[in-house]
């Protein structure tokens, strides 16, 4: 079996509301799987089902080959989880938190001490290992959560918004560590709001909205599916009438982005030819002209709108 995670018809209600609506997806071993969606779309609920915290009302989930509802202990033994909210024990030191996690995973004392030392050194926390987590910055708390999730060298790592609210440097470190972990052949399930992060890290992305999977594919394929969202960004030496431009064939929409004009089109070459003629006709100079593929954010907004709600 090639799948590290398999969600089959997963369904979950919260207070009578359908939070996760019969979703299906598979995550291959060794890939970073991005899980995107607006607030309240069902991302955290899905992660909680996959990590054995919640039981689904319908469907099942296989994690590392174990049914999370039937054999939750076996499934949990193979995973590491960094939840959305920082939840290390603030009244324990960094070292004590790691030792506790090691004990809860049944790791022998010598091994958990070696793992903890290596992780703390790797994340730059070894010098503060005896300090209470209470006094840690948000970035340090996030690092200790990652260390706690990695203490058992899990096959699959679940990350729920791991860089949310972090400074640039800490966020970059977290992303580097995720990539490093994935290079060792491990699977990562990453829920994020950060499109750039998903674009950089993920091999495959699922977009969830209103509890349903709106799209699932590789980031570049998702972008390619929305060619009508590609655009040409042009800067003339004088201002132009947007209405003139938007009336032309192949131009779906024209808008201003600062002093540049954006022309959305499914046929960029035809629009470039038109722009050159347009500049000649009105005696304008083209200062810059770029063809832009739709960003993941554009695709995300389009898909979440199509599936019944504003992103």
């Amino acid at each position: 079996m090639n799948d590290a995670i398999n969600a089959i018809n997963l369904t979950k209600y919260y207070n009578g509301l359908l939070a996760v609506d019969h979703i299906n997806f598979g995550v291959k071993k060794g890939e970073i799987f991005g899980f995107l969606g607006p607030n309240g779309a069902g991302k955290t609920t899905t992660i909680r089902i996959l990590t054995g915290v919640l039981k689904p009302e319908e469907g099942s989930a296989l994690v590392a080959g174990h049914d999370v509802s039937e054999n939750s202990i076996e499934a949990k033994q193979c995973i590491g989880v960094v939840p959305e909210v920082s939840n290390a024990y603030i009244d324990l030191s960094a070292w004590e938190n790691l030792m506790l996690m090691g004990e809860l995973y049944g790791i022998a004392k010598k091994e958990r001490e070696e793992n903890a030392t290596e992780l703390l050194k790797d994340f730059g926390l070894y010098e503060v290992r005896k300090k209470l987590v209470k006094g840690f910055s948000k970035g340090m708390k996030q690092k200790i959560l990652l260390c706690m999730a990695l203490i058992n060298d899990p096959e699959i790592l679940f990350l729920d918004e791991p860089t949310s609210g972090l400074d640039v440097e800490s966020a970059r470190l977290v992303r580097e560590k995720v990539q490093q972990y994935n290079r060792d052949g491990k699977t990562v399930f990453l829920s994020t709001h950060n499109m750039e992060e998903a674009n950089q890290l993920c091999h495959q992305i699922a977009i969830i909205n209103h509890g349903r999977i709106a799209a699932i594919d590789a980031p570049e394929k998702l972008r390619a599916q929305s060619l009508e969202l590609q655009y040409i960004e042009v800067l003339f030496d004088k201002s132009v009438d947007l209405a003139d431009l938007s009336r032309k064939t192949h131009v779906v929409k024209a808008s201003l982005a600062g002093n540049k004009v954006r022309l959305y089109t499914a046929n960029p070459s035809a629009v470039v030819e038109f722009l050159v003629d347009f500049a000649r006709h009105y005696n304008l100079r083209i200062l810059s002209l770029n063809t832009m593929m739709p960003s993941l954010e554009d695709v995300f907004i389009k898909l979440t709108k199509e599936h019944g709600g504003e992103a």
Binding site: V85, S86, N87, M101
Partner: peptide, 14 residues
């Protein structure tokens, strides 16, 4: 309150 219960439940402990 401190959300550590979720951390415990995520671990392989019944």
């Amino acid at each position: 309150r401190s959300k550590t219960l979720e951390k415990l439940v995520c671990c392989p402990v019944t």
